[in-house]
Nucleic acid binder design. Structure first.
Lengths: 209, 209
DNA sequence: GTCTTATATGACAGTCACTCTCAAAAAATA
DNA sequence: TATTTTTTGAGAGTGACTGTCATATAAGAC
């Protein structure tokens, strides 16, 4: 989890001791952090405490995570999303591609890593610093998506229409995610995201708005 | 500017010496900061330098701006937007209300404070810390807008459809703003925002996407 | 297995944003 | 003018992050 399909699945036997150790350290730090966050809250937990709990030095902590926020927000989804999108036929409407490529991805994650995802999104919702960082991530994802879609459809990389569409979509999805957390992840995330896509595809004018 | 219509317009004769001094101090700090940012960049400028340039103590700096980022990002627009929206007829479609209420506001600002707005948005674009903070602001604005619109249309305050629409709209607008800065503010911001509204209103399915 | 090289780690010192407390200065009020 | 309230500056402290250097440990050559 979180580190893609790595130590959890035995699908990577070709990794040297070094790599395996690194992955274990990384997960150790993250788990220690999550445990402390849950007990004392994010702000009240210092990097020093996390490092001590994970039995590494503070220096090592920062070697694995550039900032404290990154423990929560390291985004492993972008490359997966990109790959999934590139597999769609080039002439498919963008909205359909997103529906076919991105939604299943989210669905799969909401299933496989449900609890971790929930805890993570809860922090996003509640801790201002993390929420802010999340916005940054979104704008990076946005740029990435725009690039992929522009390449695929032969548009210029700075096509305003495309940027607007992607920005709007991510904006809508973020609200959807927040709604999902607020209901403690009880709803079907995939269905929610699809509904969001429907609304945006049909136009805000419809849907009695 | 920036501090609404305060010291710039002589429309506030009823302010005591205390208030006037506070406004002057605030603007002094901001101007000193902008000058330094332009010369040395945001990150390379310390709060201590800003305070010195503005001839106040660092303590005073933090009394006026809770964080260094707030010098750039203090958002005075939300209340104006709220007021403008509340003046629209309650049965008007949301998209139309936004078009009538918010766009003129932006237009007016892009005209009156063009250079300051440009400088500010440039920082938003280029400095990660500020961009992140901006995302926070957006999510606050989003909540605010949703509240107003929910009240106006009699929907529940946590109506998912409404949240999605507003989130998407702000997401789209943010991209539009970025496009505007990238072109050095030469385009008509109002027109750009309206176009964004058109795209979202008609639905992403149209517009050949 | 040993030697060499590349990499990971920890200790430490330093910077900077931000917080808190307290006493002095200045404006508002009586 | 005297009193009260607000604003300010000084100073100490915290915690996230950076950079450097010596040590330890895994990888690769032999």
């Amino acid at each position: 989890m979180t580190d893609m399909a790595s130590a959890t699945t035995p699908a990577a036997p070709a990794l040297g001791l070094r790599e395996r150790k690194k992955i274990r350290t990384r997960q150790g730090i993250r788990h220690a952090a999550y445990r402390l966050f849950e007990r004392q809250g994010y702000d009240a937990t210092t990097v020093e405490q996390i490092a001590a709990a994970a039995e590494v030095s503070p220096s090592t902590f920062f070697r694995y995570f550039p900032t404290k926020e990154d423990v929560v927000l390291t985004d492993e989804y972008d490359p997966l999303m990109e790959a999934a999108l590139l597999e769609r036929p080039a002439d498919e409407p963008i909205v359909d591609s997103l529906r076919q490529a991105v939604v299943p991805l989210a669905r799969q994650m909401a299933a496989g890593e449900h609890d971790e995802m929930l805890q993570r999104m809860r922090l996003v919702r509640e801790v201002p610093a993390i929420r802010a960082r999340m916005g940054e991530n979104m704008s990076v994802s946005c740029g990435l998506l725009v690039d992929v879609l522009a390449r695929r459809t032969g548009r210029p990389a700075d096509d305003l229409g495309l940027r607007i569409v992607v920005g709007a979509l991510l904006g809508g999805w973020q609200e959807t995610m927040m709604h999902w957390v607020e209901n403690d992840g009880t709803e079907d995330l995939g269905a929610l995201l699809e509904r969001t896509l429907d609304i945006l595809a049909d136009g805000l004018g419809r849907h009695a708005l």
